[in-house]
Amino acid sequence: MSSSQLVPGFDFQQAGQQVLRIEQAGLSQLEQYINADFVRACQAIIACSGKVVVMGMGKSGHIGCKIAATLASTGTPSFFVHPAEASHGDLGMIARQDIVLAISNSGESSEIMALIPVLKRQQNLLICMTNNPQSSMGKAADIHLCIKVDQEACPLGLAPTASTTATLVMGDALAVALLKARGFTAEDFALSHPGGALGRRLLLHVSDIMHTGEAIPCVGSEASLRDALLEISRKKLGMTAICDAQMKIVGIFTDGDLRRVFDMGIDLNHAKIADIMTLGGIRVRPNMLAVEALNLMQQRHITAVLVAEGEQLLGVVHMHDMLRAGVV
Rank of each mutant, 00 (worst) to 15 (best):
M137G: 13
F10D: 04
F184P: 01
G56K: 09
P155N: 03
D172H: 04
G199R: 01
R283D: 01
Q17D: 08
D37A: 12
T254D: 03
V7K: 15
A25P: 15
V317H: 06
M129I: 13
G157K: 05
F189I: 00
I45D: 05
L258V: 00
L168M: 13
S135L: 12
L237I: 01
C42F: 09
L225A: 03
I116K: 13
T303K: 09
R121P: 04
I252N: 02
V307L: 10
I209A: 04
T240A: 06
T130P: 07
I45N: 07
S60V: 10
A140D: 14
D244P: 05
N295Y: 07
A325Q: 14
A102I: 15
V54E: 02
S135F: 10
I242A: 08
K248M: 11
D267R: 00
A308V: 00
Q299A: 09
M297E: 01
R121H: 12
M264R: 12
K51R: 12
A308T: 00
G58H: 07
G75Y: 02
K59Y: 04
S109G: 12
S4A: 15
G56C: 07
Y33H: 13
L6A: 11
S4E: 15
V328N: 14
S221N: 06
V81N: 04
A141E: 11
R201F: 02
S104T: 10
I22C: 06
L30V: 09
I273Y: 03
F262C: 10
M319F: 05
G89E: 06
D150F: 06
D37Y: 01
K180G: 00
S106G: 15
S2P: 15
G213V: 03
L203C: 01
A186D: 06
A15D: 10
A140T: 08
Q24S: 08
R285P: 01
L313C: 08
A159I: 07
C154N: 09
E231N: 02
L229Q: 06
S207R: 12
V284R: 00
E85A: 12
Q298I: 00
I266W: 00
S135M: 09
V219I: 14
I34R: 07
E309K: 15
I276A: 08
G64C: 06
E311I: 14
M210Y: 11
Q312N: 09
A69I: 01
I127R: 06
K59Q: 07
F10W: 04
L229A: 07
V19L: 10
L179D: 00
D275G: 03
P117A: 14
F262M: 08
R234A: 14
S28Y: 11
G56N: 10
D172S: 05
D267M: 03
Q122H: 04
G251H: 08
L30H: 10
M319S: 05
G315D: 08
N132F: 08
F38A: 14
K51M: 13
M129W: 06
I112Y: 07
G265I: 09
C218A: 14
F184D: 00
M264H: 05
V100R: 12
A274P: 04
V118Q: 13
F262L: 02
V291Q: 13
S233V: 03
F189A: 02
E31C: 08
